[in-house]
Design a protein around this nucleic acid. Sequence first.
DNA 1: ACGCTTAGCGACCCATGATTGAATAACTTG
DNA 2: CAAGTTATTCAATCATGGGTCGCTAAGCGT
Lengths: 203, 203
Amino acid sequence: MKELTGFPTKEQLRDMKRREIVRCAAKRFGQDGFENVPLEAIATDLGVTKAALYNYVSSKNDLLLQCYEVGMDRLVAAVEAAKDTSGTAAQRLSAVLEAYIMTMTQSDMQYLWSYTRPMVMYGDKRVVQAIRDKLDYAVRDLLIEGMKDQSFRPDIDPKLASLVILGAVNWVGIWYRPDGPKRADELAQKIAREALYGYLFKP
Amino acid sequence: MKELTGFPTKEQLRDMKRREIVRCAAKRFGQDGFENVPLEAIATDLGVTKAALYNYVSSKNDLLLQCYEVGMDRLVAAVEAAKDTSGTAAQRLSAVLEAYIMTMTQSDMQYLWSYTRPMVMYGDKRVVQAIRDKLDYAVRDLLIEGMKDQSFRPDIDPKLASLVILGAVNWVGIWYRPDGPKRADELAQKIAREALYGYLFKP
DNA sequence: ACGCTTAGCGACCCATGATTGAATAACTTG
DNA sequence: CAAGTTATTCAATCATGGGTCGCTAAGCGT
């Protein structure tokens, strides 16, 4: 995170506004679906008019793209950070899953998957695939490592297991509501534990 | 399945057409997303004009509703049937998951979840919730039964476990492509086995 | 063959929402 | 302060797509 000291320059001010637009759009896109959010709505949320947005984004699709990139970057960053902690592979994978869930349950990240479809339709589907693969391989690699360091069962099929694990954690993003009774952090912990339980090595 | 013998009556003919419309629409809605499918496209697929569709459905939302109901009925029927087979609870739950996956990977069922959002927005959200709950409870009940008949571990948290299991199987519907290399039936079997592995009782 | 009903077609109507451009307010710089 | 630059707004423009209406033609019972 880059902190600002002193007054923001014009450039910074501009970039702050742009990011605020993206954050707000991501939230709405996630809540209501890309196609159901008129630019008007985003503009109103921010207290400006629709036309003003065009100073910062070149089109609605461009805005979608930016939402996706920002979101996915956050996700990947969270996962990478958790991956590089210390401990057994199992402990690290658990940390990765928790970080993943924590990120996905933030209000402007919810339903991130829900706008992968428009992304694939209007944008570059290789970007989507690349990011999805990156997450998939992070999980697989840790599973393989864990079979070596004996924190996981030795007989896992990493490809299959990563599908099941990712399914479980992504599903959280579908039903979780930030205004619900569950706290995100303890939920993340429970789900992560649950999803990995069957793979742990038990002597 | 009800078979027809002899010539279809006018009523039957009409109903066949209506169902064909729904099937076709479900496929397109799933592939491209409800909001991205003009009625014109569905009409073209069927070789008629948009206006003709209005003989069979009262609005685009009505069509969505019918798609959802038909799809969910199929899903629930498949699950109920599998639930009532014989064997241990673990075996039955495995059968349920397989049936679930098999159903969800059919081409006009793919991305069924992808139009729950429009359903919730334009339709009756209680219907959606009710069906989701039904599936959830089917899984939970079998888990509980399995703890009793010792086909599952005795220390499962059924609520949490059902989330993980449903996540895993629903995720299949997101990435599976009918034209891909995997056969749906063996995939269903593998995923079902994988998702349950950690819960099985191992003496 | 004659009217009646129904399916389907083509041409419309109309609201929505993305995008643009001219006009204006605000701010910077010399 | 005046000229120039930037941020916003307001008022079009334009395409899309849901929904409607009147017409034709085929099917059917009498």
